[in-house]
């Protein structure tokens, strides 16, 4: 598992210690996500990995799993920053 994925999983598990979540599990399907947690998740990803998530990337499919969030981070880190 990559460091990015483990950090994302660590954040989710920290918020929901009683849940068992894998890198490919859909956290939306598990019923974890509300607007508060979504905001926290976006802030965590931006802060931890030093990226700014543009509006067009704030799609549900990018946040379903640790895998998809990790891919989003990799994609953003590979792209030049847009103001």
């Amino acid at each position: 598992m990559t460091d990015t994925k483990s950090q994302i999983l660590g954040f989710v598990r920290d918020r929901y210690p009683q849940a068992e979540i894998t890198e490919s599990q859909d956290i939306f399907a598990l019923g974890f996500v509300n607007s508060l947690f979504a905001m926290e998740l976006v802030m965590f990803v931006e802060k931890t990995f030093g990226v700014t998530i543009p509006n067009e990337e704030l799609r549900i499919d990018n946040f379903r799993t640790a895998n998809s969030m990790s891919e989003l981070v990799s994609r953003l880190l590979a792209e030049p920053a847009v103001a």
């Binding site: 509300n34 607007s35 979504a38 976006v42 704030l58 799609r59």
Partner: peptide, 14 residues
Amino acid sequence: LGPSGFTAGMVLTG
């Protein structure tokens, strides 16, 4: 302003 779809609620939350 901001995204549409599932993350639109984040605008209100923030």
